[in-house]
Design a protein around this nucleic acid. Structure first.
Length: 590
RNA sequence: GCGCCCGUAGCUCAGCUGGAUAGAGCGUCUGCCUCCGGAGCAGAAGGUCACAGGUUCGAAUCCUGUCGGGCGUACCA
């Protein structure tokens, strides 16, 4: 927020106290206080090395004489300012670019950010946890784009490894050559069922082993993987895959294509588009070669493993190649990181990956730095918290995962019946359109409104409510304004008189609108969409309060009607921009 | 064991570069559809900010300790 009088105050105080770095930054005046904006002189007093209350007195003295200021008062060291209506509107809602900047950070316009997110495994369908990742990732892409930076969104599909082979083995045994089509199933769900089948059989075989050998009672199932017949088969499948066995590769290719087709419809429903998709099957060997060729930064242990010494970073020794020469997870990520850098030459790279991998990224970034890449300081892991259910953690083994597609279906069905209730005669196509926007919007908003880092509890009952602190609440205000604007017959192109919207409610909206640019900045800087959600809720609440109390179309005068329409239009523009930036659809009717 | 994160209203979450009476939504209870879309608005009840110390004019916010929870600490991914 930039208010002329506060900017002038800053200049005055800097001159008065001879401290050029102290800047008075206005805040919204808390409810119940008398004023539009507040300058907190407790904060300012530090840099200016002066007494807070004296400073506040000086500020009041200066501001009282300022032409923009209607009145101002000091409470403790807070200076509450009431502006003249004309000045308030001039510094906030009168000009569109003040509230809705073309670019929020012009200085960084040339920055190119590469964002990797989603990163699914092709052995099972996506669940609620992936939806949080996808929603967060796509929102961050558009937020950062909104601030004027260039964004490249990439996906890294984990399409190889023993977990993929598990589904393949099960399909060989139980699939009978059938296809998703013949089952009327979505490809990823279809393959997921074989993954489950594998796990079931595997557990049965573990039971058998334990029954015949009491010593194994305490041994972990994972440690007995190769002792089971089906586990052995999966391992053999993996070896055959790595050897390029034609039959195995053909099956692998067929099953993966089914899964990827399934994913693509889920992504489409979520409005997610990647600029590029990497496949681990194509990238997993890069890191190994890089590590092998780098004798300078990595060393060999006596048994032949290759390790990186990260003790300088307090991360100890990290094995990069096992003694049998095979690579580990972080080694693959070294390879893809270098590859992504070569492919796109971004200024910064970010990864949207769960918080359980914080340590992994510390190790990865330390290795990249050790290898001497100066851009290693511009790599960021954006960790997000797990999604739990009211009943506890989601566990695929116990069948408590919330499937992504089922959830999307359910949200849309509920939104449809809620919409149908309100508009009994609406045709199906329009009903579908609205229900999709509302249902998916509600889900996304619910996932985004929390700080990404918090481990969240997903309450299905709360998710399906389209009231209160929700996406539809914001969408609804947007739609109401649309209908208002449509009803307004803008016959007179009269000059708008910005001295008229003088109520508390109108003033509050004006100040709130002016906050939008810094909200965008904060969201982009902190990689946190939730600040936008919170802001949109506040703005919507401000609007609804105004809308209830003051008539727009039946305003006492045409001039007041015109200015209120202008105010509503500004609110709608911000709501639309904010929703767009969260990758949530705004509606004109709902 | 060590490391990181977290404990705020019945529930889900904000607030945490120290600052004005700790906020919102849901749930509970009261009101409001002769008037711009009630997916809305107005209001009430509900909190020793896990606990104990400390720093400060001032602490939910910073520091230390205790208790409770999560995650990590692989030659798994």
């Amino acid at each position: 927020m930039i208010f002329t009088c506060v900017r002038d105050l800053t200049a005055h105080l800097q001159h008065l106290y001879g401290s050029p770095q102290a800047t008075a930054s206005p805040e919204i005046c808390p409810p119940g206080m008398n004023g539009d904006i507040t300058v907190n002189c407790f904060r300012l007093a530090g840099p200016l090395r002066t007494n807070p209350q004296e400073l506040a007195d000086a500020a009041v003295a200066f501001l009282s004489a300022h032409t923009d200021v209607a009145s101002c008062e000091r409470i403790k060291a807070f200076v509450n300012i009431t502006l003249t209506c004309v000045a308030l509107c001039r510094d906030t809602v009168e000009h569109k670019t003040v509230c809705i900047p073309e670019r929020a950070v012009p200085g960084d316009a040339s920055r190119h950010v590469l964002i990797e997110y989603s990163a699914p495994n092709t052995n099972k369908p996506q669940h609620l946890g992936h939806v949080r990742n996808n929603t967060l990732g796509s929102a961050l892409c558009s937020i950062i784009r909104r601030t004027g930076q260039r964004v490249t969104a990439v996906n890294l599909v984990n399409d190889r490894g023993v977990h993929i082979c598990k589904s393949m083995v099960a399909y060989r045994r139980y699939g009978c050559g059938e296809t998703p089509e013949s089952h009327g199933a979505k490809g990823d769900h279809y393959i997921g069922s074989y993954y489950v089948k594998f796990e079931t059989t595997f557990r049965e075989q573990i039971q058998e082993l334990r029954k015949h050998n009491a010593d194994l009672a305490e041994t972990k199932a994972a440690d007995m993987f190769l002792d089971t017949e089906i586990g052995r088969a999966a391992q053999d499948e993996l070896v055959a895959w790595e050897n390029g066995d034609l039959d195995v590769r053909a099956l692998w290719h067929r099953l993966n294509s089914w899964v990827l087709e399934g994913f693509s419809t889920t992504y489409a429903r979520l409005g997610i588009v990647f600029d590029h998709t990497y496949f681990e099957s194509e990238t997993y060997k890069i890191g190994k070669n890089v590590v092998l060729q780098d004798r300078e930064n990595f060393s060999r242990t006596e048994d032949g493993a290759v390790v990186a010494d990260l003790s300088a970073d307090k991360l100890g020794q990290k094995v990069l190649l096992r003694r049998d020469g095979t690579s580990v997870y972080v080694t693959q990520d070294i390879g893809t990181t270098l590859m992504k850098y070569e492919d796109f030459r971004p200024d910064t790279m970010i990864w949207i990956v769960g918080d359980e991998q914080i340590h992994h990224f510390k190790v990865l970034f330390a290795i990249i730095r050790k290898m001497g890449f100066e851009w290693s300081s511009r790599l960021h892991h954006i960790p997000y918290g797990m999604v739990n259910l009211p009943s506890g953690k989601m566990k695929s083994r116990e069948g408590t995962v919330v499937d992504a597609d089922d959830l999307l279906d359910e949200m849309v069905v509920l939104a449809r019946s809620a919409t149908r209730e309100r508009h009994p005669t609406l045709d199906d196509a329009e009903l579908d359109k609205r229900a999709t926007a509302i249902g998916i919007g509600a889900l996304k908003f619910m996932l985004l409104k929390m700080n990404p880092r918090t481990t969240m509890t997903f309450d299905p009952a709360a998710a399906i409510r389209f009231e209160g602190d929700s996406g539809p609440y914001v969408q609804y205000a947007h739609a109401r304004i649309a209908s208002l604007l449509q009803k307004y017959n803008h016959d007179s192109a009269t000059q708008i008189d910005w001295s008229l919207p003088n109520s508390d409610e109108e003033r509050r909206i004006a100040v709130r609108c002016a906050m939008y640019p810094e909200i965008l900045d904060a969201a982009a800087r902190d990689f946190d969409p939730s600040v936008i959600c919170g802001y949109l809720i506040d703005l919507t609440k401000d609007f609804n309060r105004f809308y209830k109390k003051h008539s727009v179309l039946s305003a006492p005068s045409d001039a007041l009607k015109a200015v209120r329409i202008a105010l509503c239009r500004r609110v709608q523009q911000i709501l639309g921009d904010g929703l767009a930036v969260l990758n949530i659809e705004a509606l004109d009717e709902m």
